[in-house]
């Protein structure tokens, strides 16, 4: 039972739309809990702990924000001069559920999809234009090369006594210029080679091959969208 990568992308994007549209706790719990649990399962299997750390950090930042801007209502916890009130906790909870709705499906997508398979699937199943498919597959191939360039630039910066991690806008410019310069030089030659091999004559490949399981997953996403947008507002 192989799910098409495009299907998982569509699922993640529909759930992102759900996260943007859901407004109440009830409407957010429906997609948040099952998707987040599934997402965490796949994340732990792939050992992508940084995503879980970033999620915890983001929820903490949201809680601080809520304490600053919407800390009103009945007091829930008093810690010396700090009084945590009902609305700050409620707001953090709603936003955390929204984040879970976003992160869960994206983790399922990232853990189960190889970038090259995704690009092939986008072109074949969704009709992504050949130029964009070319750009994306080249981008995937360039990531390790440019990562090597990035590390070399960082080492050179260190040897010359500059900050290793760019902080100021001028640091960022000093990093971007050599990185893009090397990349552009490579890109010109790759582009010329592709043109010489008849890139512009290549025909578009659009032969959708979705199976029953793909339709079920897309239907599942649409059902969640309908529940969140139309049904839960009626219940609450």
């Amino acid at each position: 039972m192989k799910i098409r990568p495009s299907t998982l992308l569509i699922y993640a994007v529909i759930l992102a739309v759900v996260a943007f549209m859901a407004r109440t706790e009830l409407s957010l719990v429906v997609p948040a809990i099952p998707n987040f649990v599934a997402g965490i399962y796949f994340t732990l299997r792939r050992r992508l702990y940084i995503v879980i750390a970033a999620f915890v950090l983001a929820v903490w930042a949201l809680f601080l924000n809520a304490l600053f801007f919407v800390n009103y209502g009945e007091p829930i916890l008093v810690l010396g001069p700090l009084v945590i009130r009902e609305n700050a906790v409620k707001a953090t909870m709603i936003v955390a559920f929204r984040l879970m709705t976003l992160v869960g499906p994206a983790m399922i997508f990232v853990s189960n999809v190889e970038p090259r398979e995704l690009i092939k699937s986008l072109e074949r199943d969704l009709g992504l234009p050949k130029g964009l498919a070319f750009s994306l597959s080249l981008a995937v191939r360039l990531i390790p090369l440019m990562n090597r360039d990035y590390n070399e630039i960082m080492n050179i910066r260190k040897e010359r006594g500059f900050r290793r991690i760019p902080i100021t806008p001028s640091d960022i410019k000093a990093l971007l210029v050599p990185l893009v310069a090397v990349g552009i030089d490579r890109a010109y030659w790759i582009g010329i080679a592709a043109e010489l091999r008849g890139f512009s004559l290549r025909k578009r490949v659009f032969k959708p091959s979705f199976k029953l399981v793909d339709y079920i997953i897309i239907a599942l996403a649409i059902v969640q969208l309908v529940i969140v947008v139309f049904i839960t507002p009626l219940l609450s």
């Binding site: 080249l138 981008a139 360039l142 440019m146 552009i184 890109a187 010109y188 592709a194 512009s200």
Partner: peptide, 9 residues
């Protein structure tokens, strides 16, 4: 193809 390569970079 050159433009698409630059886009990739």
């Amino acid at each position: 193809a050159i433009d698409f390569s630059v886009l990739a970079v």
